[in-house]
Design a protein around this nucleic acid. Structure first.
Lengths: 110, 110
DNA sequence: TCACATACATAACTAACCTATGTATTGATC
DNA sequence: GATCAATACATAGGTTAGTTATGTATGTGA
């Protein structure tokens, strides 16, 4: 993803949230959706996307389903029950962060 | 500093902004001010604070003045002209980040 | 046929930040 | 007058997130 420092650390939250909103999705589809939602400002790189998906799966937050499209493999990811509660947690954390940082920096949020 | 992931990457912005608002300050004073402003939620550690101050000084964003308080050394940091323009840049970046992430996650900011 | 988009994946590197450690002074409590 | 906490600086070493670079392979439009 692109680099304004604070964006680092939000990757997991972003993935969980788009999966929550759009149901099962495959990796490439996620990159496109995020690009669209952010109007081209957030470009997920494979090097961060796939390791994070694998990690979330290993931790039981995501479940996968592999589908063959012609000869091409597609791996769909969806939230598990645990994953659904993690989304809420991550979103709350991010919301807290935005409130705290806005206070400290006295930035007006419009 | 403490760890809700997104806070990582905001250290430089925080330092620059408190120095902009409060004029010359020394390291320990900064940790206390930030703790106060954040109501105890952001606790800067020396291990991140001092290297960042040194770095900003080396880059010409901060100038220093060492003062002896009795037998104890105090090193005051203040923004240079370059530093002042960097604050604006960093604050704009952070503001953009908050806007972008809010859109993508469809979080309502109050 | 050649380039670009789709689709997965991982190894190696970078950079930020934290933990741990070190030195030393000051002030409060026992 | 000893001991602990707070004040005040600093850096070495480790962790981890994310990037860059690379690899494999299919589908599609010029």
């Amino acid at each position: 993803m692109y680099s304004p420092e604070p964006l680092k650390g939000t990757l997991q939250t972003i993935l969980l949230k788009v999966l929550k909103d759009h149901g099962k999705m495959y990796g490439y589809e996620i990159t496109q959706r995020v690009k669209e939602l952010s109007e081209g400002r957030i470009l997920l790189t494979e090097g961060s996307l796939y390791p994070m998906l694998h990690r979330l799966e290993a931790e039981g937050m995501l479940k996968t389903e592999t589908v063959l499209m012609g000869k091409r493999v597609r791996k769909y990811y969806a939230l598990t029950a645990e994953g659904r509660s993690l989304v809420k947690e991550r979103l709350n954390e991010l919301f807290d962060f935005i409130k705290t940082i806005s206070t400290v920096l006295q930035v007006k949020i419009t």
